[in-house]
Amino acid sequence: MGRLTVTILLITIPLFSADVNIYERNCVKCHEKLPVSLDKFFFNYLLKYSSERQVKQALRKYLKHPKRKSSLATEEIILRYGLMPKSTLSDAELREAIEIYWEKYKVFGKIE
């Protein structure tokens, strides 16, 4: 029994570490603490910016220079949790994180 537990742990540790990508580490980690989930923010971006190109462009701009005017969060959330801090990620990392975010919540191919 003890040997089996060790084996499962050895198998799952690399898997978990692989799942924790740049998006998980830098976005999900903080947003988990907020009452509004990341998918709601995604649909807010879709509602305002429509296309993949424009959504990604708006996200990149906001994450680099978060401003109250360009934030899609509600007033209440901003008052309670404040604006998110400026991203410390490099441009390439930011693009990668946004790409993962888009792929996770995009509607293309999901409508039945």
């Binding site: 429509s50 296309s51 190109r53 999901k110 039945e112």
Partner: peptide, 23 residues
């Protein structure tokens, strides 16, 4: 969308949706 993903259909017409970049 997190609960159901069925596109609104009607036998009287056919439809399509496009984003701002015409995709």
């Amino acid at each position: 969308f997190d609960r159901y993903r069925t596109y609104p259909r009607n036998s009287l017409y056919r439809s399509a949706i496009y984003d701002a970049d015409h995709v």
